[in-house]
Design a protein around this nucleic acid. Structure first.
Lengths: 198, 198
DNA sequence: ACGCAACAGAACGTTTCGTATCGTAAACAG
DNA sequence: CTGTTTACGATACGAAACGTTCTGTTGCGT
């Protein structure tokens, strides 16, 4: 199988990046339902055609915009299962946390993930991979004799992911915390989850 | 302030209920974005006007449809904080769990909650009240000397809610469990969360 | 130089939201 | 019983937005 040589004028990668950035910005402002392709186009200064040439639907555009900003990184491996899981959670949080001001009540970027047509696009390229990373962390901990092998590993991973999800999307009044406090709360949760019962 | 006496022909409560039911059904089938008011109307056999007379927007209709099926019930009070919280979580789960077949991969009814215009409507009438119920359970446990008063109560409540949220909305491959197994997984989580550290 | 595809711009068909208008039906007050 | 008020069905309508199509132009690779 030879690599098909692309013919004609290639896509402008710079334009692609600007469209993705503008999409993220619109997303944070107005959410998925109210995001307007035409508005993104005019914000970038390109035509609507240029966008539809790259992504067939709004859902695909938005999924790409989200995934473009997200980084999976390396699976944490500090030798301490608690710190590994805290770092794991932190990576997830940083991928979605809004760092501008004013801080919106709800994280619309994360909310957009929940559109029925967007979820499947994010799932394979992000959520499943993150789950595998979590399992790696726990498997190593078991191998080190640091973690009871009888614990429900999916429960541990899902509870951590669930907390982030809940805080960023639904929770209306999450107290404003600095990073250290926030990280501490994850540490508390993780410590509970990995403690051997009895 | 006297109660304004309604004049003229009253709204047909039976019709209202049928519209809400049809909305829930459409929601489970196609999700919020693809739900069509006109389709709900024709499913019920009423006019679009009858719907817009009751709810000003699609978001309001959907929020009402969700809340209509949801029950807050009494705050569990068994004397055991673990069982109270498990029951608390179970009530939440049953409010959203799809009980028909085939089971959809994602719970579209719950996904609809995440629309930026729907969330605020659900928040006041459901999420906040549930949070208060959680705090009641924990406060009673502290009063009984059953729970370390130093624990982060919001963290406990949010972690439980987050797990349900995550499982129902995003998690693609939650193993099919029967009710007993599912309840056990909550019991495991809750026990971890309320255990005193050290 | 030539071919191919991206580019901007603009028009277009379609769908759907939400509103408005009409005539009829039903509850209630006097 | 009569009049008032509001729900009801039916239908038409305007506005908005998705996604497509077309035209003419620009730029990359062979």
């Amino acid at each position: 199988m030879t690599q098909a040589t692309p013919q004609g004028r290639p896509l402008d990668d710079d334009l692609t990046g600007r469209v993705l950035a503008a999409t993220r910005e619109s997303l944070e402002d107005v959410g998925f339902v109210n995001l307007r392709i035409e508005r993104v186009a005019s914000a970038v200064g390109c035509s609507k055609t240029a966008i539809y040439r790259r992504w067939p639907t709004k859902a695909e555009l938005v999924a790409s915009a989200i995934l473009d900003r997200v980084t999976l990184g390396e699976t944490p491996d500090t030798g301490d299962v608690v710190e590994d899981l805290v770092e794991h959670a932190w990576q997830h949080l940083t991928n979605f946390k809004h760092d501008g001001e004013p801080k919106p009540k709800h994280n619309r970027t994360m909310l957009a993930m929940f559109d029925a047509e967007v979820i499947p696009l994010i799932e394979d390229r992000y959520m499943k991979k993150r789950h595998v990373m979590g399992r790696e962390i726990l498997a190593r901990a078991v191998a080190r004799g640091q973690l009871d092998s009888q614990l429900d590993q999916d429960l541990i991973i899902d509870a951590i992911a669930g907390l982030t999800l809940f805080r960023l999307s639904i929770k209306p009044d999450t107290k404003v915390r600095n990073d250290a406090e926030l990280k501490d709360s994850y540490r508390t949760l993780v410590r509970s989850l990995v403690a051997s019962p009895g």
